[in-house]
Design a protein around this nucleic acid. Structure first.
Length: 548
RNA sequence: GAGGCCGUAGCUCAGUCGGUAGAGCAACGGAUUUUUAAUCCGUUGGUCGCGGGUUCGAUCCCCGCCGGCCUUACCA
């Protein structure tokens, strides 16, 4: 193991989500431990600089609860208390504190105040941080009557961030509790939290104000922590297998590597149109040509296409390329990687996904396109010479494909429609789908023996295609022909067709080794593994139109 | 792009077959030293998404717009 679990302190993934790795009972890592306490400034100095000003403090905001909190803020400042101090030295996360033996003194915890039960001179409250929740108790006697009556009871609200120093106790109902000796503001909230029992239910609010969703709905936090684990576990596995993580351009002069409509933008000082990438593929293969053995990238890609629950405008695609591998090497590696990632991030290989039991352990079966379709509907696609023959066979079997839509389809797309209709929904998997017809796979390497097939595999799980991989096309003459055909389509008005890419061809003409490449939508994998129906629920801040 | 559904207090939701709206939580005042959705007493809070129309009167009916969700077509 490259980074052993018990030495990892802070994991920052590529989604900029700082993630504190919580070890069970291991205590906080050095990064966290109380260092030299910065000496407190004299009160007057601490409060002299007031960047938040009083601009709104005397004017009604039109929101009753906010106004009440603004007036509390004034009283907090008047009392010489800094409502937003710069730092708090904590000794334990809340989950760690809960595990401490009763009697442990000098426990310093912090978090957001989620519930508060004031019973006269004794109060219980709940703090929440990333690790979970822990009860605290505040007694009049322990914190002093002026503080208890004037600050704790009058100025502290649900939603505020607080820091507590105290001793671990266990209440008579058995609840681990930090009994506070002192309580301090760490961040005053001017707006109330959503309802404490139901939280935020409205999906739009969850997307627009994800911080509220994360605060109120633990399963949302767990889902994004899962995403982070999936990414870091994948990265670790690839690193351990001699893959090199690279970054390739997002802004480029032509979109290449996939058939999709790009986003366009404008570069001012060069005065030229640029596009956002639709795939990292051609760049990564250039790196293989340049001598990298194995490369990968978690590539944010952008496609200017329709929105629905299974498509995002910007999404994260993991692609990797390995020199000297064919697609079968890649298939074995894919299985090993996903088994590792699923075991490490979910703790088991036996999952229930979309209502079906899915077993990721053992060897995953492989099935060819032809066998699968033959089994599911009795049509042997190898015996159909062309699209018309296949169309006739479909009609003869009475399979309900939309007549209007399939009339113009070529053989490849027709096979694909048939597969999506008769086979894919029933595939629970994990199963590798192999031997795709060449018409269906314009980018993959033609099989050396069966020229009508390609060296390609897809991984299907619970009816979802989550991986697409090939033996890569490295023949520059073949590639040129295929790109010329795409360029013809483009000129003919197909705005999803690929553009001619001379620079890429130039690279290929300089020579490439055998390569197998792999592509997987990270959002879709996480969506599947977390049993979500909408990709927007596995993206922290999905794109939404501005509210009216 | 097409079709359907939805938008009421800070949050979760009722409601009005057309007569300018209710509850719980939150907030505010009070009681309360072992609660954990604390409890008890009292109080405040709304341009019913926005704009038109019909009507004596619209949160409700009609039209348009804004935003969201679902289905559907194209891309992973």
């Amino acid at each position: 193991m490259r980074a052993s679990a018990n030495s990892a302190s802070v994991v920052v993934n590529n989604r900029s989500m700082g993630c504190l790795k919580i070890g069970s009972g291991r205590g906080l890592e050095p990064w966290y431990q109380p260092g030299r306490q910065r000496r407190a400034l004299p009160r007057a100095a601490a409060c002299r600089y007031n960047p938040h000003g009083n601009a709104n403090m005397n004017t009604s905001s039109g929101n009753e609860q906010r106004d009440v909190r603004l007036s509390k803020l004034e009283r907090i400042r008047a009392a010489g208390i800094n409502p937003w101090p710069e730092r708090f030295v904590r000794t334990h996360t809340l989950a760690e504190a809960r595990a401490l033996p009763a009697g442990t003194a000098g426990v310093r915890v912090c978090g957001r105040l989620m519930t508060m039960r004031v019973m006269g001179k004794m109060s219980f409250a709940t703090l929440q941080d990333q690790s979970g929740r822990c009860q605290i108790s505040v007694q009049c006697e322990a914190v002093g009557e002026p503080f208890y009556k004037e600050v704790w009871k009058k100025l502290i609200d649900l939603g505020d961030f607080l820091g507590i120093e105290g001793e671990m106790v266990v209440t008579k109902t058995g609840e681990p509790t930090v009994a506070a000796k002192s309580v301090q503001f760490l961040g005053k909230a001017l707006r109330p939290l959503p309802e404490k029992w139901h939280g935020v239910q409205d999906q739009e609010t969850c997307h627009r104000q994800r911080y509220l969703d994360l605060t109120m709905n633990r399963e949302t936090m767990e889902r994004f922590l899962l995403r982070s684990r999936v990414v870091s576990s994948t990265r670790n596995f690839l690193d351990r297998h001699a893959f090199v993580e690279v970054e390739t351009p997002v802004l480029q002069t032509k979109a290449s590597g996939a058939a999709a409509k790009p986003f366009f933008s404008h570069h001012n000082s060069l005065d030229m149109q640029v596009t956002l990438r639709i795939a990292p593929e051609t760049w990564l293969k250039r790196l293989i040509a340049g001598g990298f053995d194995r490369v990968y990238e978690f590539a944010r890609c952008f496609r200017n296409e329709g929105m629905d629950p299974s498509h995002l405008q910007d999404f994260t695609m993991l692609e990797w390329y390995a020199s000297y591998w064919n697609y079968e090497d890649n298939m074995r590696f894919t299985q090993a990687l996903l088994q590792h990632v699923i075991q490490e991030s979910l703790g088991t290989l036996l999952l229930t996904l979309r209502g079906r039991a899915v077993d990721f352990s053992g060897e995953w079966p492989r099935v060819s396109f032809r066998e699968l379709i033959l089994k599911d509907c009795g049509i042997d696609i190898a015996e159909c010479k062309d699209a018309d023959a296949l169309r006739a066979a479909v009609r003869a079997k009475g399979i309900a494909l939309p007549e209007e839509e399939i009339r113009a389809l070529g053989f490849g797309n027709l096979v694909d429609q048939l597969y999506k209709k008769v086979s894919r929904p029933a595939l629970t998997g994990p199963v590798f789908l192999v031997a795709h017809p060449i018409e269906l796979s314009p980018l993959a390497r033609r099989n050396d023996v069966a020229g009508e097939l390609t060296d390609r595999f897809q991984l299907v799980v619970a009816g979802w295609e989550i991986v697409n991989a090939y033996s890569e096309l490295v023949d520059p003459l073949d590639q040129r022909q295929r790109l010329e055909e795409q360029a013809r389509l483009k000129t003919g008005g197909d705005d999803e067709a690929m553009e001619m890419d001379e620079e890429y061809l130039l690279c290929m003409e300089h020579g490439m080794p055998p390569i197998s490449g792999f592509g997987m939508g990270i959002d879709r994998l996480v969506c599947l593994l977390s049993n979500q129906d909408n990709l927007r629920d596995v993206v922290l801040f999905p794109l939404l139109k501005p509210q009216a």
